[in-house]
Amino acid sequence: MVISTKEKILTALMAHPDEWLSGDQLAQQVGISRESVWKAINSLRKRGHQIASRKNRGYQYAGSQQLDELAIKVTAGTGFDGVIQVTDQTTSTQDLAKQFLSQHAQPQLAAFIANQQTAGYGRLGRSFYSPGQTGLYFSLVLPNPSNDLSRVGLLTTGVVVSVVKVLQRFFPTQDFGMKWVNDIFLNDYKVGGIITEASMELESTSASAFIVGVGLNLTTATFPRGLTAIAQGIDPQARVDRNRLAAALLSELVAAYQRYPTTAFLPFYRDKSVVLGRAVTLQVGQRTVNGTAVAIDDQGGLVLKLSNGQQQSFTSGAVTRVRRA
């Protein structure tokens, strides 16, 4: 694969974020002329990259406020070798991923990232508020060579754990929780959600690929009236490099998927659960189930103690209400 001059320059700058690199250093490192360095710097600036320049010192990378597939690719390095597509606005990144799969007979690793979604959605078709500049919304296509669906419950729970572990690195003072099966909570407010959909093979019940959608309200300060009581941004005052966060998430998710199916993450998931020991209402299709959440089983299922004293495990559905037992 041919690496462009812009990519080489950006790689060099991002590898030394707090240092000044002279035009001569960059030219020598990349193997181009100083004029080519200057042209590449200007091109990167037009893409939204903040690159300071100072006489007798050179250039220093200061990040980017815009999502940029080149920056994500450079930061992820060998951690993510799939297709990366970034768009400013789309209905849902899940739609982009499904369109991509429909155009490729053989599923391949790919990520679709948007600055804003106009029709983002989660489980049960519920909308996910996805304003521009303050969140991160992406869908990840994960090929499923085995076509097996029997342990898919471990996939969504594993994805949630991976996302939370990355968020803890970027927001080390925040104490995140997880609401079964796919919501990320902070201080009793939802700050993120995950949806896992399968690309089904025709005339079979097997899945050729999974489409994992992740929505995060990072610095979102205002929400529509109907959401203000249940949702918030992680930290509206924070400065978050979304390109670095996206790269870290993609790398972590790919690494975790290579271990799928595994139960190694379940102790962390249980420890961070906001439903265990609580009375919950679970919506399973058209059926509503009330009970006390007593366990997360080894398939990622939610075990409820029902009013008759019996325990039942659920591998699908959505918790719509949590209250003290």
Rank of each mutant, 00 (worst) to 15 (best):
T5R: 03
T5Y: 00
E7Q: 07
I9A: 00
I9F: 03
D18Q: 13
L26W: 02
L26P: 02
G48L: 08
I51G: 05
K55M: 11
N56K: 13
A62V: 12
Q66C: 05
Q66Y: 06
Q66N: 05
L67E: 00
I72V: 12
I72W: 00
I72P: 01
T75E: 13
T78K: 08
T91F: 10
S92Y: 05
S92K: 02
F100E: 01
S102C: 06
P107V: 14
L109Q: 08
A114W: 01
Q117Y: 02
G120C: 05
R123Q: 15
R123H: 12
S127C: 13
Q133W: 02
P143Q: 08
N144V: 06
S146M: 03
L149D: 10
V161Q: 13
S162F: 11
K165W: 08
V166G: 05
V166R: 09
Q168V: 09
F171S: 06
T173P: 05
Q174S: 14
L186G: 04
N187D: 14
V191A: 07
I194F: 07
I195T: 05
T196S: 09
T205S: 15
A209L: 02
N217W: 07
L218R: 04
T220A: 07
F223G: 04
I230L: 08
I230H: 09
A238K: 04
R244M: 09
A248D: 12
L250P: 01
S251L: 02
A255R: 07
A255L: 06
T262F: 05
F265Y: 11
F265A: 09
R270N: 13
D271H: 13
S273N: 11
V284E: 10
V289T: 07
A293T: 09
A295Y: 07
Q299P: 11
V303G: 05
K305G: 06
V322C: 14
R324Y: 13
